[in-house]
Design a protein around this nucleic acid. Structure first.
Lengths: 301, 301
DNA sequence: CTTTGGAAG
DNA sequence: CTTCGAAAG
């Protein structure tokens, strides 16, 4: 048994008080007004929101669904639901705005990973995973086929602390690219979700210090480059090539969000064929309820 | 990967709605006004409070210390602190009302068990455990010696679901009784804490259904009977021999506290020699912050 | 820092 | 039901 006597903890407590550090004013990102038409004047007729909710149940309690109702996308994609289907809150299972709901969860650890897609209109077909047994046990991908496009929502494997899962991630990136290329041959596609990579230095606050950390290794960045090279476009960067300080994730630690020390990890990636219809790619930095904020795509299909 | 399509969860949700059961008005226990003098007219000059806090950190957040300040005992004994000493909240380590603070915690799992004693006046001597290696690794006992008495606070091992630890408990009960008997030969003692047994049928709401459950097995009840037989008194029952519905613990499950479906598991047990000074033995049923309520002893020493 | 399931109660 | 430390992020 550990034992201890402490005659007066107050003195010790006073020692701990640190001098407050002068806080620098953080540079925030202000999402500009939504552009509702494409470059060539077509009007947006599809609105998709993607949000890594970091635990669906906690996110529902924090009123994430109120924000969704305000945003009112046609399709809502969620990542890191961390929730077995039987444990889904009634607030979301009973949501009448989205009669068509699809859930994928990890087989082993039901509190790990997991994605969802909620649709106003019924897709032609919905599939789960990427067709490779080794990748399809963690509930990371849902693909919905619509008349003019595929919508793929994904939660890409984190390379982990100490990059313990970087090798697996490289395999994933290869196989996922092959999966998307195959789809793209049939019909143009929209990929959205937490791709767990900041592509370029502009896509995170501290590029220098993170080259050996999950999400900004050369391997992960190259994986994303390769994906884009096979015929896809990072919609946000396409529209705002020089925009700094635009992030979608901030660690809960060290008040990172307050200081806007973030990463852009969430994306809408489009088949090149859809580019003419691109109206806007939004980062809803203000929406709270997770360590990620939601992103929204406005498209003319 | 688990997968699923649900076209409309609302219908299913409606099915789940159960008819509300008619709630019977629970019989509550009203703690009578404190008696501040003993039978033979001596005035109480010692006030001790004992509380199983079920996690010190959560209990502090729930304002347990505000209640303590109001109650203002001379000595505060806590059980199930579940907190390594380095993780103690400053709110309690810096509390100037109790300059003499003693902590015992489990060696292996620092989030398990653990007891504390906070004193206005410095004890002559403080010891930890009961002097038997096999019992002293879980931070369950602190003994403080004062001029006229020993004070022992204890968190007695739970016999566990399915009584998996009942055999160990029987050994504990034997050894603990021996420990207390030894002390009692030197000086009268006060034992307080969560003794994890409801002694008689009057000491819990559902005696019939709990004869095979931890806390009300014949073995545990007999263990307590044996302890009392060796020269000690259950102070509450001594003063209120017929009082029903007086409990100190209610499981968090099934709204047990709201229905007063409880157990009397927390006690002040006195050496017979202290009985003439007994003024009152209180159950503070209203105090919230744990699944146990605090109890308070008023004694003339 | 915050989420989750798991052990314990 | 609620606590906690663990793993994960």
């Amino acid at each position: 048994m550990k034992r201890s006597k402490k005659e007066d903890g107050a003195a010790e407590e006073r020692m701990k008080a640190k001098p407050a550090k002068e806080p620098e004013a953080p540079i925030l990102y202000e999402d500009p007004p939504d552009k509702l038409s494409s470059k060539d004047g077509k009007e947006a007729n599809l609105k998709i929101t993607s949000w890594n909710v970091d635990g669906l149940r906690a996110w529902v309690k924090k009123k994430g669904l109120d924000w969704v109702r305000e945003e009112a996308p046609d399709i809502l994609c969620l990542q890191e639901t961390k929730c077995a289907e039987k444990s889904l809150p009634a607030d979301i299972t009973s949501m009448t705005e989205y009669p068509h709901k699809y859930w994928a969860t990890a087989e082993d650890n039901q509190g790990y990973s997991g994605v969802a897609m909620l649709c106003k209109n019924k897709p032609i077909k919905v599939t789960y995973g990427i067709g490779k047994e080794e990748h399809d046990k963690e509930g990371r991908v849902i693909t919905a086929e619509f008349p003019n496009y595929f919508l793929v929502t994904a939660y890409i494997p984190n390379a982990g602390k100490g990059l313990v899962r970087l090798d697996y991630r490289k395999t994933w990136d290869e196989d996922f690219k092959a999966y998307l290329s195959d789809l793209d041959k049939q019909k143009p596609l929209i990929l959205c979700g937490d791709l767990n990579v900041a592509h370029q230095e502009i896509d995170l606050k501290n590029p220098k210090g993170n080259k050996k950390n999950a999400g900004f290794t050369p391997e992960e960045r190259e994986g994303f480059s390769q994906l884009l090279a096979s015929g896809f476009v990072d919609s946000f960067r396409e529209l705002y090539p020089e925009q700094q300080y635009a992030y979608t994730f901030w660690t809960y630690m060290m008040n990172a969000r307050g200081k806007n020390v973030g990463w852009r990890l969430d994306y809408f990636v489009l088949s090149s064929a859809l580019l003419p219809g691109l109206c806007d790619s939004k980062i809803r930095s203000k929406a709270m309820g997770s360590d990620h904020c939601p992103i929204t795509l406005l498209l003319a299909t």
